[in-house]
C-alpha cells in the first residue's frame, strides 16, 4: 500500500499497463514531455519512449480515429482528451466508429480503446473546462463508461478499463485529482469488477446514489445527516454503463427512498435512467418518488456562478428531506 493522490493513482495504473502489455500505447495532447496538463502521465514518455507515449496533433477526432486504426492492428490505445468540453470534435469517431465496430463486424474486430476524460466542475475554470458529458456516452450502445471517486478505484478501474476488450470512457473527477488515499497495486480475488457499484457507506433510511466527484459530497451529506439521526446509505456507482442496478435495488428495498446526484444537467441524464429503472424494479418498496439533485439545464455557467449550478451538501440534504417527507424547499420552509 502506498498513499497516492487520485491523479498519481491513475498515473501508476497507466505505468503498470504500459509495463505489462507492449500493445498499450498512450495518445493525447501534451501527454509527453509535459506529462499532461494535470500531470497524470508525468514521467511516462521518459520511461517508455515516444513510441508508446505519443504527443499528437491538436485534433480530437484525429486522436480517436488513429486509435481505431491502432486497435485494428492489435494495439490497446489509451487516449487522453485534455478537458471534458474538448471531446465533442471526436464525437463521431467515438459513437459511430469506436462504439459500433465490434457489432458491425460481428465480433471480428475488437476496440480495446480507453478514453480518459478529466471532467466536472468546481475548480473555477473558464468555459468548456468543467463539463460532465457522460450521458452522451452512456446513451451509446457499445461503450462502457466508468468514473472513479477515490485513488484506489482510480488505479484499479484504469487498469481494468485498459484490459477490457470493449471501449471504455473513463471519467476522471478533476476536482478530486489531489485527494489522497491508500492504493494497493496488487489485484486480488476481492477486487471489485469494473461494472460493480460499491456501498461507500451503509445506512437504513435513504439510498443516495453518486459517482465521480460527488461521492465525497454524498459522504459528507451522510455524515451531516447522521447528526440529525438520519441514516443514509451512499452508493458509489463506479460504472455508469452498465449500471449495477442489483446493488442499487438491494439498497432501495432496504431504505425505501432514493436520491440520485450528478453534476451533469438533469434532462435525459443518468438520474432519470436510474429513477426509472429502480421504480421499475422495486416500485412497491419505494416510500417516496425518487429525487434528483443535479446541475441545472443550462450551459455550464461562469466560475462565479458554479456554486449555484453544482449539487452540494445542502442541496443533497434538501432532497433527503423531500424523500423523507420532511419540510424542504419544495414544501416551503413554514410547512
Amino acid at each position: 500500500m502506498t498513499e497516492l493522490t487520485l491523479s498519481r493513482a491513475i498515473g501508476t495504473g497507466l505505468r503498470r499497463a504500459l509495463a505489462d502489455d507492449p500493445k498499450v500505447v498512450l495518445l493525447g495532447e501534451d501527454i509527453g514531455k509535459l506529462g499532461g496538463v494535470f500531470r497524470v502521465t508525468d514521467g511516462l514518455q521518459e520511461e517508455f519512449g515516444r513510441d508508446r507515449v505519443m504527443d499528437t496533433p491538436l485534433a480530437e477526432a484525429g486522436i480517436l480515429g488513429t486509435a481505431v486504426g491502432l486497435a485494428f492492428r492489435g494495439y490497446r490505445p489509451v487516449c487522453e482528451i485534455q478537458f471534458d468540453g474538448f471531446i465533442y470534435p471526436a464525437f463521431d469517431q467515438i459513437v459511430a466508429q469506436v462504439a459500433k465496430m465490434h457489432y458491425r463486424t460481428a465480433g471480428s474486430v475488437t476496440m480495446p480503446i480507453t478514453v480518459r476524460v478529466p471532467y466536472g466542475g468546481g475548480i473555477g475554470a473558464v468555459e468548456h473546462h468543467s463539463e460532465s458529458p457522460e450521458a452522451y456516452f452512456t446513451h451509446t450502445s457499445g461503450l462502457r463508461v466508468v468514473s472513479c471517486s477515490n485513488p484506489q478505484d482510480a488505479h484499479t478501474l484504469i487498469r481494468q478499463a485498459i484490459a477490457s476488450d470493449d471501449p471504455v470512457l473513463f471519467f476522471e473527477p478533476k476536482r478530486r485529482y489531489w485527494v489522497k488515499g491508500e492504493v494497493d497495486e496488487e489485484f486480488g480475488q476481492q477486487t471489485l469488477a469494473m461494472g460493480a457499484a460499491r456501498v461507500a457507506r451503509e445506512g437504513t433510511d435513504v439510498t443516495l446514489v453518486a459517482y465521480g466527484p460527488l461521492v465525497a459530497t454524498a459522504l459528507d451529506a451522510a455524515g451531516a445527516a447522521s447528526d440529525d439521526g438520519i441514516s443514509i446509505e451512499v452508493i458509489d456507482l463506479r460504472s455508469l454503463s452498465p449500471i449495477d442496478f442489483d446493488t442499487v435495488e438491494a439498497s432501495v428495498r432496504k431504505t425505501g427512498r432514493l436520491v440520485i446526484t450528478h453534476e451533469a444537467q438533469q434532462f435525459g441524464g443518468l438520474g432519470a435512467e436510474i429513477a426509472a429503472s429502480i421504480t421499475d424494479r422495486c416500485f412497491f418498496s419505494l416510500e417516496a418518488a425518487p429525487a434528483r439533485v443535479t446541475g441545472f439545464d443550462v450551459p455550464y455557467p461562469p466560475a462565479k456562478l458554479e456554486e449555484h449550478f453544482l449539487p452540494d451538501l445542502d442541496r443533497l440534504l434538501d432532497a433527503v428531506d423531500r424523500v423523507l417527507g420532511r419540510t424542504n424547499s419544495l414544501t416551503g420552509w413554514k410547512a
Binding site: 477526432a61 480517436l64 488513429t66 486504426g69 485494428f72 466508429q97 474486430v109
Partner: peptide
C-alpha cells in the same frame, strides 16, 4: 479490408492508425 465506412472520411483516420501500427511492428 475493413468494413466499408458510410460516414464520409472517417476511415481515413483508421488507415493512419493502422499504418502507424505497421511501422511500430
Amino acid at each position: 479490408m475493413a468494413t466499408p465506412s458510410i460516414i464520409i472520411g472517417a476511415q481515413t483516420l483508421h488507415a493512419v492508425g493502422y499504418a502507424i501500427g505497421c511501422a511500430k511492428d
